[in-house]
Amino acid sequence: MNRLTLDLWVGFFVAIGLASLLFLALKVGNLSGSNMGPTYRLEARFDNIGGLKIRAPVKSAGVVVGRVTDIQFDAERYQAVVGMNVNGQYHFPRDTFATINTSGLLGEQYVGFEAGGDEAMLKAGETLKKTQSAVVLEKLISQFMFNKASEDKKEEK
């Protein structure tokens, strides 16, 4: 086969290969969406983080405003320290309430911010004071079962 035709075909082959990689990166993956611009770091302490994972979203009013970057255990206070990168555009009052929520009944867990009324804003590196732990489904169920059992006993008497 002619060398020029050969080059043309191989060029076509490499080009559609790169195009499919681009398709995977932009349309299938989240390369375009992962760039949040400048971020700042916030920390929050929780008694129990449930199934929260690194890279889980941080949402306020349902909008993604950041991502969880690291999760550590504080051996002195027996609490989990969750580090988050929050989009630099958004600032939250100092009495913002951080909760761990679940999207849907069995969905992934995320950190939710509920803004408070303080005039002063949280600065980079600060810790959120007010937090609420993840709801552990087993605890809820067991509480319900024990209540039910004690009610039954009362009725027997």
């Binding site: 990689l21 995977l24 990166a25 349309k27 299938v28 993956g29 989240n30 390369l31 969406g33 992962s34």
Partner: peptide, 12 residues
């Protein structure tokens, strides 16, 4: 949903 859970570095 695909874009939210497929990571460029980790998966692709």
């Amino acid at each position: 949903q695909m874009q939210a859970s497929v990571d460029f570095r980790e998966d692709i």
